[in-house]
């Protein structure tokens, strides 16, 4: 079945409340990386690790209680997201520019 027909039969709610969170947290992680003075791959590694930790927070606080009350198993995010990949990696690409921006800014501010 094509995606268009699938969306007509089973419409989805497109409003996502998480993009705001990811833009805020990625800038924050940039501040962290700048203060720590990380360079090259270490900074991106920090971004990756902290983003995954944030997503785990989101999962525990927001997704898990309602999913369990609906009778879903642990680790199932299908109630709120199209798939596990979209949930676990959704904020990574969109937050990257903000991360690099604040990272370079605070690196320059701290180390004159």
């Amino acid at each position: 079945m094509s995606i268009e027909r699938e969306n007509q039969i089973h419409p989805i709610v497109t409003e996502s409340t998480l993009s705001n969170l990811y833009s805020l947290t990625s800038s924050l992680f940039g501040v962290t990386a700048g203060i720590l003075g990380l360079e090259s791959y270490n900074g991106f590694l920090l971004y990756l690790v902290l983003s995954v930790i944030t997503t785990i927070f989101v999962y525990v606080v927001k997704v898990l209680p309602e999913s369990l009350s609906e009778g879903r198993s642990i680790g199932d995010t299908e109630r709120f997201f199209k798939g596990a990949l979209q949930f676990w990696s959704g904020g990574l690409a969109s937050g990257m520019p903000g991360f690099v921006l604040t990272w370079t800014l605070f690196y320059g501010l701290v180390r004159v």
Binding site: P11, V13, I35, R79
Partner: peptide
């Protein structure tokens, strides 16, 4: 201190986000 502060802000922001909506329209 930097790592602890980052984690604290992160937890605060996550707790402050509005509730998610079920993605399937009929469930919502």
């Amino acid at each position: 201190e930097t790592i602890v502060a980052t984690m604290a802000v992160c937890i605060g922001l996550v707790l402050n986000t509005p509730n998610l909506r079920p993605i399937q329209w009929n469930v919502w």
